[in-house]
Nucleic acid binder design. Structure first.
Length: 270
DNA sequence: TACGACTCCATCAAAGGTTC
DNA sequence: GAACCTTTGATGGAGTCGTA
């Protein structure tokens, strides 16, 4: 049974962007919806355009409102009593979509609600389900942990055990590479996947969407040892892993995951 | 079971590059 | 030019597998 609310998946968001920026539709309704979307998906650049180009005043307070306003569509997921959520899952399907195109498992993960994540997994929720950015539940949790030390030091450890798959398969052009969870490359790849969108929605030192070790270390600074071992949470180690997995590198176990765009700056292997 | 060959990975150290 | 960082070759160790 389809959900009775509108879901802001890719086509719906494009429609909204056209209405607000190209057609400049009158009234605040569309701008308000787009602003809610920007706060939920952490898109400060979009909020800035709303504030500057459409004179939508509330968007000026993006940084203060992101953490509160952005959670509006999944507030019930913070609660310890979640019978209503499970009932909704029975009604619309375990992987139905919330208004911002999150599956219930993603919302449970980003709110750090470990018992709810367990309950959803028990009922068959799909850990691999992704939103229109390619984020699954683990990615939603990681994004929260990268900016919130309390989340990283709190529920993330348990969420990681529940949500991180044993391996990930990456198509590197000419071959399919499997990266097991115990490898450094596994978590670096997951991290860069989460940070990738921010290369385009946040202001960056480099315009080509590339990453340096500082971006990774910054994201990892509060992570517990069960996720990133302390000996791996070092600049030297990261540099080595990135360099050895660079496309043209002559290294026996090179997985060709990254492409070097400048010294110390890497992008995914396209 | 003991042993050696082999795979895979982390780490070290030195050379080279970048930035201020 | 110094400090800092990245790159890269070498090395050692853990784990696995086959064989006597």
């Amino acid at each position: 049974m389809p959900v009775p609310w509108p879901v802001f998946e890719e086509t719906k968001v494009i429609e909204l962007l056209v209405k607000v920026f190209r057609e400049q539709a009158p009234g605040a309704k569309w701008k308000q919806q787009l602003y809610e979307y920007a706060t939920c998906h952490d898109e400060p650049q979009l909020a800035e355009w709303l504030a500057c180009e459409t004179r939508f005043e509330p968007a000026k307070y993006f940084s203060q409102q992101r953490a509160t306003f952005g959670r509006k569509t999944y507030i019930p997921y913070f609660a310890h009593h979640f019978k209503d959520i499970l009932r909704q899952c029975e009604q619309y399907g375990i992987d139905h979509r919330l208004p911002m195109n999150q599956a219930p498992l993603m919302a449970a993960a980003v709110t750090g609600n470990v018992p709810l994540v367990e309950a959803l997994l028990e009922r068959g929720a799909n850990r691999e389900a992704v939103d229109h950015y390619g984020y699954n539940a683990l990615h939603w949790a990681l994004r929260e942990a990268f900016r919130d030390a309390r989340f990283a030091g709190g529920p993330l450890a348990a969420l990681y055990e529940l949500l991180a798959p044993a391996s990930i398969d990456v198509n590197t052009g000419d071959r399919l590479v499997r990266i097991d969870r115990h490898l450094s490359e596994y978590f670096i790849f997951q991290t860069l996947w989460v940070l990738f969108k921010s290369r385009f929605t946040h202001w960056q030192r480099r315009a080509n969407g590339a990453f340096d070790t500082q971006a990774i270390l910054g994201a990892w600074q509060h992570l517990p040892a069960n996720i990133v071992r302390p000996e791996r949470n070092k600049r030297q180690h990261l540099s080595g892993v990135l360099a050895r997995n660079e496309i043209h590198r002559d290294y026996a176990y090179n997985r060709a995951l990254f492409m070097r765009v400048a010294q110390g700056w890497y992008q995914f292997n396209p």
